[in-house]
Amino acid sequence: MHILRHLNRAKNAALRQLKFKGLNAWLNMTCRPQAWAPDKIKRILLLRLDDKIGDMVITTGTARQLADKGYHISVLTGPVCEALLAYSDAVHHTYRYDKRMSLSVLRQQRFDVVIDFDDVRNYERLRLLHRLAPRYVIGFNKSGSARYAPQLVWRDSERHITERHRAVLALFNLLPAPFRYSLGRDPSAVDALAPYLSRPSDEWIIAINPFTGSEDKDFSREQVAGLIAHLRRRNVRFRVLLIGRGDLLRRWELADAAFIVDSTINTAVEIVRSADLVVSPDTSIVHMACAFNTPLVAIYNTRRLKDSGLVGYNIWAPHYDNAVQLVIDQPSVSDLPLDALCLAVDDKLADITRQRRNGELTRCRAATSAEDYRQR
């Protein structure tokens, strides 16, 4: 049975590749790319089809700058990112992507340009672009596909992912400016978190995010429990909030930490917005922390990105001054010695204390609108 399933998957993959090559060849013969004219563009659709939260958090920086210049911004993405964008004033419409979805509503929008941020090349994506029929499709590393125009080349493991987004903004003649992510505020998430934020003025909130999308980047239960025990031995009052799915965190049975049972992506945003310090492996929580300038200790391994093969710890670094990034040689983040993790957290807590004493720590907790972001 296993062999039959393997053969069926191989057959389907071969058919999709054949269909991609056929459609791409036909489009290469029939497409006549128009000269790039940003002054004629009004309606923009951003593609984030894989529903990856970290990618979407960073994409909000591009959406913010384009929206502030008067462009009408829509996003096509999955259900989690749809929820993340529900309260974003930078995005006018969010559409939920499905391979079998009807495109009638999207086609009625008559988008002037679609921006595809991914390096992915497949039949479903090319067919979607063909059927939407925008005037332009901005794409990265899509040589040999005439449907993508303008095309941008970006493969550099030494430059941060925001540089890819800056390349897009340059096409719209937007001058280099601080690239700030733009996350809205879900009232129901604020209400869900409120009981956990009632605390004495001298109590710190330490948020720990144990989980990522890959086991080799996850913290172990032993690391989290050990860090909490270490924090409890300090002569400072702490409250530890865990970020993640309630069903997974409940299994860990950590008595000295709280978590939101019915957590959502937007409760995670509010925890990061409210925390005094976040501790996390390489995942979307890192970029949420950047959005609010929340002090951060982030742990990365040296794994390579699936789509490009590039090492991810430079491209997806926290990329702001209030973050500490540890890159470990061990294959798994769970192999990081507890002493090293505790030392990094102690150093960051000392740094936060110094900044507070000197009035140097600036937070962006309440920034939820375009005007808020302009006034930072």
Score class of each variant (00 low, 15 high):
residue 253 E to D: 12
residue 234 R to W: 00
residue 263 S to Y: 11
residue 260 I to M: 06
residue 251 R to S: 15
residue 250 R to Y: 00
residue 275 A to S: 14
residue 250 R to K: 14
residue 261 V to Q: 13
residue 236 V to F: 01
residue 256 D to R: 07
residue 275 A to I: 04
residue 248 L to C: 10
residue 240 V to R: 00
residue 259 F to K: 08
residue 243 I to P: 05
residue 245 R to W: 02
residue 244 G to C: 05
residue 243 I to W: 04
residue 245 R to M: 07
residue 273 R to A: 13
residue 243 I to E: 04
residue 232 R to V: 05
residue 243 I to H: 05
residue 256 D to N: 12
residue 263 S to G: 10
residue 250 R to G: 01
residue 257 A to F: 14
residue 232 R to S: 12
residue 268 A to W: 03
residue 257 A to P: 11
residue 249 L to C: 08
residue 250 R to V: 04
residue 263 S to T: 04
residue 269 V to W: 08
residue 276 D to I: 06
residue 275 A to T: 10
residue 246 G to F: 09
residue 264 T to L: 10
residue 257 A to V: 09
residue 235 N to F: 00
residue 252 W to R: 08
residue 267 T to N: 02
residue 246 G to Q: 15
residue 251 R to P: 05
residue 233 R to H: 05
residue 231 L to S: 01
residue 238 F to H: 06
residue 245 R to T: 06
residue 269 V to T: 11
residue 274 S to I: 02
residue 246 G to K: 15
residue 261 V to D: 14
residue 241 L to F: 06
residue 276 D to Y: 04
residue 242 L to S: 05
residue 247 D to Y: 04
residue 262 D to A: 04
residue 230 H to E: 02
residue 230 H to R: 12
residue 271 I to H: 12
residue 260 I to R: 12
residue 267 T to E: 00
residue 274 S to C: 15
residue 258 A to V: 13
residue 270 E to R: 13
residue 271 I to S: 13
residue 236 V to G: 00
residue 258 A to Y: 15
residue 230 H to W: 15
residue 250 R to S: 14
residue 232 R to H: 13
residue 244 G to A: 06
residue 257 A to K: 06
residue 265 I to K: 01
residue 233 R to E: 11
residue 232 R to Y: 07
residue 239 R to K: 08
residue 239 R to I: 01
residue 257 A to C: 12
residue 233 R to Y: 04
residue 267 T to G: 01
residue 249 L to E: 08
residue 231 L to R: 02
residue 232 R to F: 06
residue 242 L to F: 07
residue 242 L to R: 05
residue 263 S to L: 08
residue 253 E to A: 15
residue 265 I to E: 08
residue 247 D to N: 12
residue 261 V to F: 01
residue 231 L to I: 09
residue 270 E to S: 07
residue 265 I to P: 09
residue 270 E to N: 13
residue 268 A to I: 00
residue 276 D to N: 12
residue 234 R to E: 02
residue 266 N to R: 05
residue 247 D to K: 07
residue 244 G to V: 05
residue 233 R to Q: 08
residue 264 T to I: 12
residue 276 D to H: 11
residue 230 H to N: 10
residue 240 V to Q: 01
residue 250 R to C: 05
residue 271 I to R: 14
residue 265 I to A: 01
residue 264 T to R: 09
residue 243 I to Y: 05
residue 268 A to F: 07
residue 263 S to E: 06
residue 240 V to M: 07
residue 255 A to T: 14
residue 260 I to C: 03
residue 238 F to A: 00
residue 239 R to N: 03
residue 272 V to R: 07
residue 269 V to N: 09
residue 262 D to W: 04
residue 241 L to Y: 07
residue 262 D to I: 03
residue 271 I to M: 12
residue 247 D to G: 02
residue 275 A to H: 10
residue 259 F to Y: 15
residue 272 V to C: 15
residue 240 V to W: 08
residue 237 R to S: 00
residue 241 L to S: 02
residue 248 L to S: 13
residue 256 D to L: 08
residue 272 V to W: 01
residue 235 N to K: 14
residue 268 A to N: 13
residue 242 L to E: 06
residue 243 I to S: 04
residue 275 A to W: 11
residue 266 N to F: 14
residue 240 V to E: 03
residue 272 V to F: 03
residue 273 R to V: 08
residue 273 R to N: 11
residue 264 T to Y: 12
residue 254 L to C: 10
